[in-house]
Design a protein around this nucleic acid. Structure first.
Length: 354
DNA sequence: AACCCGGGGAT
DNA sequence: ATCCCAGGGTT
């Protein structure tokens, strides 16, 4: 009474006929698989494509990745989000250089020990790059399998993920396990979709799907509600002298760790409080001008921002206290600035430095 | 187990 | 406005 045991053949046939052409697919190169899988964590295929192309041109192999300066690494990841992914991948690359002579291990457990490689990614690399018959359970697979088997468990729970991994471990084919895993994900991405109505008419395994048999596709997967996001009010400063603008480096831990940002303060500050901050930095404000509000939504917090342009007397040293005074062109080339600041960073490009 | 960590496209 | 994406690390 295991409907999973029958999905293999029709699923693989469907995949062969319908699989998308992707830059990292059918490359027969474990590094390609690795980089793509890290980029694809919580990130859509279409978003990854341009980043993947550029990344592989700049860092074509594990050694290049291991040696890359952090600033350049973050610049290559700028805008993708979850920036620890790339730092962890570099740590893993350095470990691969030292322990494995620059070759990713052909072993699920050893892959799993590398920084940034969890159950899913270890399974993906092992099965896709090395034809090792292990499951690779991502959000797509959880959705597909919870529907096929009418599994009512909360798919966010570790126990449910483990259970589905075990069920798949018993049915995954010894031949082309990588295609099997990719077929399940592809099915989830284009047929058994996360948003909107599932396209069961087009599904190659609908006759083995318990949820479909009962007309209950949309009742799965079960998922506990997320808690609401916290709101943080912020005051963003575009501090400019006659030729440059101030940025600073964020702390090395926490949100947007190690990236650069426009100087900012917690809360919506009155002009007097902004002046106090500028005095602490020994900057001489010539004028302060409101430049509008903006909102940025992260996965777990919202920033409600109010921006001010602060014109200051000419600053002699580019490195001044906690600030770095840079020409706008330099930020584009060297400093990774998260998109939360886009509204105010764009303000710079509009040639308002006068 | 609960929480933290980005950004954007689809509905 | 909400969901969720080829998840993993930390506490």
């Amino acid at each position: 009474m295991n409907s999973l045991r029958q999905i293999g053949e029709p699923l693989m046939k469907w995949y062969q006929e319908n699989k998308r052409v992707l830059p990292w697919r059918d490359q027969n190169n474990a590094y390609y698989t690795w980089v793509s899988e890290i980029m694809l964590q919580q990130t859509r295929v279409e978003a990854v494509k341009p980043y993947f192309q550029r990344f592989m041109e700049e860092l074509p192999d594990i050694e290049a990745l291991a040696r890359c300066p952090e600033e350049k690494l973050l610049k290559l990841w700028e805008g993708l989000g979850y920036y620890n992914r790339v730092r962890n991948m570099q740590k893993a690359a350095q470990e691969v250089m030292e322990k494995y002579g620059g070759q990713l291990p052909r072993n699920y457990e050893l892959l799993r020990e590398l920084k940034g490689i969890g159950n899913y990614t270890a399974g993906a690399i092992a099965s896709i790059a090395y034809e090792i018959a292990v499951p690779a359970v991502d959000g797509n697979v959880l959705r597909v399998i919870s529907r096929v088997t009418e599994n009512g468990g909360d798919i966010r729970k570790q126990s449910v993920k483990r259970q589905i991994e075990e069920e798949l471990r018993e049915v995954i084919p010894r031949e082309k396990p990588g295609d099997f895993n990719q077929a399940l994900m592809e099915l989830g991405a284009v047929i058994c979709v996360p948003n909107g109505q599932a396209k069961c008419q087009l599904c190659p395994i609908r006759e083995f799907c318990q949820a479909h048999a009962h007309g209950r596709e949309m009742d799965y997967p079960k998922k506990a509600a997320k808690k609401p996001r916290a709101v943080q009010k912020k005051t963003i400063l575009v501090i400019q002298d006659d030729r440059s603008v101030a940025i600073r480096r964020r702390p090395s831990r926490g949100l947007l760790a190690g990236l650069y940002e426009l100087p900012n303060l917690d809360g919506w500050l009155a002009q007097e409080e902004i002046l106090k901050y500028l005095r602490e930095l020994e900057l001489e404000p010539l004028r302060i001008l409101p430049i509008g509000e903006a909102k940025h939504v992260f996965s777990h917090v919202e920033w409600w921002m109010r921006g001010y342009q602060v014109r200051v007397a000419s600053v002699e040293q580019p490195l001044w206290k906690e600030l770095i005074f840079v020409k706008p062109e330099e930020t584009a080339e060297q400093y990774a600035i998260p998109s939360a600041f886009d509204v105010y960073a764009n303000y710079l490009k509009e040639e308002k430095i006068r």
